[in-house]
Amino acid sequence: MLKEITILSFGGQGGVTAARILALAAVKDGKFAQAIPQFGAERRGSLVRSYLRLSDREIRRHSSIRKADVVSIFAEKILKMVELKDYLKENGIVIINSETGGDYCVNASEIALSLNLVSAGWPIVNTAMAGAMAKVLGISMDSLLKAINETFHGKLAESNSKAAEKAYEVVHKCR
């Protein structure tokens, strides 16, 4: 079955990379996957949408995702900027980088900071959020770690792997 996921993040938080890593991990699990970055006036600090499709069958469509089955929110502040119902199907699931405000919560910023995943003063939460999303979406940790290690190298691969593992472990239902 086709599952559609929209990631809402700020430019620089790594939403596009998270979608790609999760797509790669799903393919390693033997599934079909597609990651689409939404290009426009995106830049550091602005709201960025990235799309992820997962399926057991070939994914043929290439249009953007309108209302997703799952919305992943990389910063609590984004909730105040968008109408969630514009992005999410009725009964859809929200995964959020926060202690409250979604169906599944994970403090990805704290995990990123604890592992020194910081760029220009910002916690880079993409791999922590990818870990939490993998848990909720049923993507294996093994494949996720392989995907992370193909994306990052050396020390960065190590700390990003740790971030994903930690988030996978601590993400919890919060509604």
Partner: peptide
Amino acid sequence: MDAFQLSHTSEV
């Protein structure tokens, strides 16, 4: 190939 829909989309 179509801009972004293929050029920048990761798929199998």
